[in-house]
Design a binder for these strands. Sequence first.
DNA 1: TGTAATGTTTACCAATCGGTCAAATTATCC
DNA 2: GGATAATTTGACCGATTGGTAAACATTACA
Lengths: 214, 214
Amino acid sequence: MAIPRAARTQRRTRIQEEKEEIILEAALDVFSVSGFRGSTIDQIAEVAGMSKPNLLYYFRTKEAMHRALIDRVLFTWLEPLRAFDANGNPESEIRSYIRRKLEMARDFPRESRLFANEMLQGAPHVEDELRGPLKALVDEKVEVIRAWAKAGKIAQCDPYHLIFSIWSTTQHYADFDVQVRAVLGDEHSGEGRFEDAARYLEQLFVDGLRIRQG
Amino acid sequence: MAIPRAARTQRRTRIQEEKEEIILEAALDVFSVSGFRGSTIDQIAEVAGMSKPNLLYYFRTKEAMHRALIDRVLFTWLEPLRAFDANGNPESEIRSYIRRKLEMARDFPRESRLFANEMLQGAPHVEDELRGPLKALVDEKVEVIRAWAKAGKIAQCDPYHLIFSIWSTTQHYADFDVQVRAVLGDEHSGEGRFEDAARYLEQLFVDGLRIRQG
DNA sequence: TGTAATGTTTACCAATCGGTCAAATTATCC
DNA sequence: GGATAATTTGACCGATTGGTAAACATTACA
């Protein structure tokens, strides 16, 4: 008889690793478009190319799949902010932060949309993580930015809103991709639009913060 | 026998006007949080305080409710951009555009989230409107901004991405409200945060575009 | 006040939902 | 190769889904 996955303590099988990966990949496809409530296990099973009971053998509930995805995304999503370096100079740090966030929007749009979906629904599954680890990390970087402002390296500004504005402008290209494409028209919707966006955003933030090379 | 609403040609009744308003209000509550697929007619009926068949007497399908909402939101949502005046001076026009968009995020967050949900799902119900009327309006305003840049009133920049960045930064405060509150902490999450955001964003864009009074 | 149109409700439908179960199949390891 | 554990499947469950039919209640208007 099969032992329910959650009760197992043994090392994971090769098949387990592979199948769980396939399932999470399919779940990301579905959840990122339809949100948690709007997605069905059947949809995910079909995308994953396996039967529903088989899928439920690896993740016992829909919540379990969603939680596994969210945990993974939350971690990697904050990678660029973690890399934000207090010892670097303001201009290059902000430039590369924008770059990295924009690259993530381009390379991992589903992850961005999964997160956006969760926010729109009021973060029912991750509010604790937002108030805990996320806030802690942001608070830390806010202090860095404040120090830069105090030293006259950048203009006086609210560091929280600065971070919000970088998040929103970059993630916009993943979350509102369909709108961006529609407005730009098919001719300007190629991959070049990310380069255009990077150029514009770097100019906006560097000049907007009146950054002086330090 | 009751005549299906869609087949009626007569003027709308007082009861119709009232009930349809109540239903759309409830539908906005539900759709804006859960998206189209994740929302149920039963939820909407409960929020509206009427029975499901009664609700379906006024809107024959879930799609009909959603479409009615989207149509209404799409129109009012573009009001600030329509007000964007080519004859005004760049600084005050951009300042007041940011203000207006921020006020809408504050006063109509459900409408913003409804739209965001639709975008995340790939705009299955409104892609035509995006490629048609929306693109047309944006193209028109883009020309205004281009003229400003040509006249040296603002820095050279891609007007499309400028508009995207104003959209994203302002709507962020509605769509990601829960994250903003979590990061700012309960002490800074009052209504004052909109004033802080307005101050920061105006500074960012005015300096970022190196606007010179015209 | 009568009556026809409008509005509301109860009971119901087939389809889909998340999830279970036991049986059948496959992989692993001695 | 055989025993044992891991994996997969089809059949199924009760609850919920979007939506309907028809009886019933209310309103508007002559």
